[in-house]
Amino acid sequence: MTNISKDRPVSSQSAIEKMRAMIKPIIEKKIKPNAEMIDKTGQFPRENLLYLASEGWNSVTIPKEWGGLDFGYVGLSVAAEEIGKVDASTGLVYAMHVGAVQAIHIFGSQSQKERWLPKVREGYLGTLSISEKATGGHVWYNRSQAKNDGTEYIINAQKSFTTSGGQADFYIVQTRTAGSRDPKEHSSFIVDGHKDGIIAKPWKALGVRGNHSGPLTFENVRVSYQDLLPADGLDVLNGTGVAIGLNAVWLGVAQGALDAAVAHTTRTVHRDFNKSLADYGVIRQKLAEVKIRITGLRAWQLDLARRLDELRALNESSLPLASEIKEQKVQATELADFAARVAMDVAGGFGYVEGIFERIYRDARGGIPMAPSNNVAREQIGKELLSLPLELWEEGK
C-alpha cells in the first residue's frame, strides 16, 4: 500500500486526494460489484469489510503500532464517503465499525488495546449497541443497567437498532452503571460478539438492506471486569467520532445519486427532437443545485474532521464539536434524500423501475430517522440556541 507522506499533514489537499486514489480501486474491485446483490438479498457485506481490512482501511484511524493507517478522522471521512457513493449498507457498517474501534483506541486501557486492536487489522468487525426500545431515539437515556456479579458484569438489555447486529465480532454496549441510581451515569463494555445470550432479530427494511440494524437482545451476557471501558459511557458515545463517519456516508450517497443522474442525463437522447436530457435547462439547474450543496457539505465535513483530529492530537475531548456534528447530521441526511429525489426525477420513468435510482432513493431515506432523528436533533439544536435546558433525563427513574 502507498504511504501518505508525513512531509505534509494528512489533512492537506494533496494527502486527501492521495487517500481517495488509494481506496477507489478497492471500492471498484470489491464493493461496487456487490452493491446490487446486497440490496436484493439483504446479505451482510462481510466480504466487503474483510477486503477493506486486508488493505488496512478498517484500522484507518488507529496508530501504526496497532496495525492502523493513522489517517485520523480525515481519512475516515474520505473512506466513508467513497464507500457511501456505491453502497450505503457497507458504508454504514464501516462507519459504525470505525466508531467502535475508536472507542477502544481513545478510552480503552492498554490491556484492552492489546487484546482487541490487532484483531481489527486481521478482520475483526465491531459496532456500537446503544439505542433501546424503551427510549427510542433518545440514545443517551438507557433503561438497561448492568449488574455487578463479583468478577463479572451481567448485561440484560433490549437494544432497538444495532448496525451489524448478530454479525459483529465485538460490540461496544452502553448501559446504566451497575449499582447507580443516577440516570446520568453510564458504562460501556466491550462484549465479545460470539458469546451466548446475544440474540439478533432479522433485519428487513425499505433500504440499506445489508447493514442488519435490527433489534439485539442481551440475555444474561457475562462480561469480565477487564472489558469495562475505563470512562463514562456518555463520554464514549460522544467521543468515538462515529457520527462524523456516518455523515460522510450520507455525503457519499448524495454524490452517488448525482453521479448516476449525470450519467443518465448525458447518455439519454430523445430521438424525436434529437436532444439529450442535458439540453434541458430545468434538468441542468436541478443537478446544479445538488452539486452546489454537495460541495458545501464536503468542505464542512473535512473541516470538522480536521478539527476532531486536532483535538485528538492534543488529547482533548471532542465534546465541544458534538453540537456542530449533530447539525451536520441533519444537513447530510437531508442532502442525501434531496439528491436521491432529484436523481429519480431526472431519470423519469427509468428512475421508478427497479435499479440504481430506486435503490439509492430507498437507501437515502435511512439517515433521517437514524438516531438522533432529525426531529430530535432540531429540537436539541433549537433549545441550545435559545439557552434552554435539554432535559435529557427524568430524575429518579
Rank of each mutant, 00 (worst) to 15 (best):
A260S: 10
T61L: 13
P215N: 09
D39N: 12
R365H: 14
S89T: 04
R46C: 05
E379L: 14
S318W: 06
E132V: 02
V330F: 12
K326L: 15
R378W: 03
S373R: 04
E28Y: 02
R312C: 11
Q167K: 14
R298K: 15
Y153I: 05
R46P: 06
L125G: 00
L388S: 02
P389A: 05
G367I: 01
M1K: 00
Y225A: 13
V10D: 12
E81P: 00
D39W: 13
G366H: 08
S129C: 15
I190Y: 04
S11W: 14
K329A: 11
D303M: 08
Y352G: 07
L228R: 09
Y153A: 04
R20V: 07
E47N: 14
V98C: 09
F44A: 12
L388H: 03
I62H: 07
L228I: 05
A257W: 07
G367C: 01
A243K: 11
A80V: 01
E132Q: 12
I16Y: 00
I198N: 08
P372A: 05
K383N: 10
G355H: 05
L304N: 06
K18R: 12
G241H: 03
G367N: 00
V173P: 09
A205M: 11
S180Q: 07
S318N: 08
G91S: 09
N142D: 07
K184M: 15
R222F: 00
L92G: 06
E354D: 14
G150M: 13
N220I: 04
L297I: 08
I199W: 04
L321I: 01
S213M: 15
S77E: 07
E310N: 12
F350G: 01
A168G: 06
E81W: 01
Q158C: 10
N238D: 13
M96L: 15
F170E: 09
M22H: 04
L258T: 01
K32S: 11
Y51A: 10
R121K: 14
S188K: 03
